[in-house]
Design a protein around this nucleic acid. Structure first.
Lengths: 217, 217
DNA sequence: GCCTGTGAAGCTATTCACAGCT
DNA sequence: AGCTGTGAATAGCTTCACAGGC
């Protein structure tokens, strides 16, 4: 199986979500251009991505929604459930727990950690909080391979080192800091501060584009 | 001025942050390979990016940290402060307010909105909450061009339409949904559910890579 | 006619590699 | 000797455009 690009993976995840939102009794098939309109990508792009997962549609009816969901899921999901840990039960941590709860059957946030004693052992957003002292032990016991870091930048590197030592292979990092990690660990950064700065920059670009058009029309 | 890629903008924002964390009295200059180590990008990439903002270093001392910060800021920041609104003061909204508070002098979250009466008029994370009824009015009054959407997917499109009608040109969207927007509006999507799925997928990839190496060494 | 699947072309982004400087 | 700045090469990603099918 030849490797697939991260961008394609992102899009496949979005396709699946859209398809899951369609009632298969009302609409059993869908064309690439329909998906294109719904996702904002081009039809050609979608056909390419679908090709990558090894599914084929029919030139007459388009893609069968259920079959396509299955093919994407076979490709993206693990055969068994993957366990996920969340570290840092502040506002951001709660938001992630809450957004994610029950969204994906093959992905389960089975533990949350915090070093605030007042949170430990409470059940927050359906997840019991464990003291960070027990991080390594719990991760090993529960066979957790993915960690979500919703902690301040100061402690992010230390926590990353510890979860990696306990066997974690994928980190979703919300702390605004570059983590130093071995090559056999995947890190996805979601820097919230940078996101605001970026949106502001391009907002400004759009404003000047607009005045450009106004001048020339 | 020829257009610069979104990826370069992201990196510039990160360079600036790193540089701001350096004490200029201790270290007045920095080499591209040092920045490379700190950021995880390559030295060549960094030199290219710096080129884009029109700053030049010295082959002897490398880049002057302060001058580089200034050049990046001139490039990225607006001349005056840009006002930002946050819509949806739930856990995620609070997290964003809290992370962002006072981080960038040229970017200010001046208003937050919610339709929960019990939050309206309270000051949360240093920002008074305004009722969503007054969204358009307040955005116009405060001359807000950037909106952060930390609301459920169901209401995201409606709110997006409304902030755009009030003049917003940049949206940072945390709702897991594709927004339909006119071409003169920039949208940056930060889909939290997708991020977890992606991290889990690549965690799995890393695991199989590892077993591959184990078999072949 | 209108779809999918896909080779080929086009475009964007990154890295190489080296001239030029001190 | 060791850096920057950058043309040229490479790699990666997206779109074009059309054959093939019903």
């Amino acid at each position: 199986m030849n490797s697939i690009s991260p961008k394609t993976i992102e899009r496949l995840i979005l396709y699946r979500r859209i398809l899951l939102g369609i009632n298969p009794d009302e609409k059993s098939h869908i064309y690439s251009h329909e998906l294109a309109k719904m996702t904002g990508f081009t039809a050609a792009q979608i056909r390419r991505d679908i090709m990558a997962v090894g599914y084929s549609g029919s030139p007459v009816h388009g893609y069968n929604t259920q079959a396509m969901i299955n093919s994407i899921s076979d490709f993206i999901d693990a055969p068994e459930v993957q366990n996920v840990a969340l570290i840092g039960v502040g506002h951001l941590g709660r938001a992630v727990l809450n957004y994610f709860k029950g969204r994906r059957p093959k992905l389960s946030i089975v533990a949350s950690f915090d070093n605030d004693e007042s949170k430990v052992n409470r059940v927050i957003q359906g997840c019991r909080v464990i003291h960070t002292n027990e991080l390594e032990k719990s991760i090993k016991e529960m066979n957790i391979q993915v960690a979500i870091l919703t902690i301040p930048a100061e402690s992010a590197q230390e926590i990353a080192d510890r979860v990696i030592s306990a066997g974690v292979k994928g980190i979703l990092n919300y702390a605004p800091i570059k983590l130093h990690t071995p090559p056999d660990v995947y890190v996805e950064n979601r820097d919230m501060i940078m996101a605001v700065e970026k949106a502001a920059y391009f907002a400004r670009q759009k404003m000047s584009e607009e005045s450009f058009y106004e001048l020339h029309t």
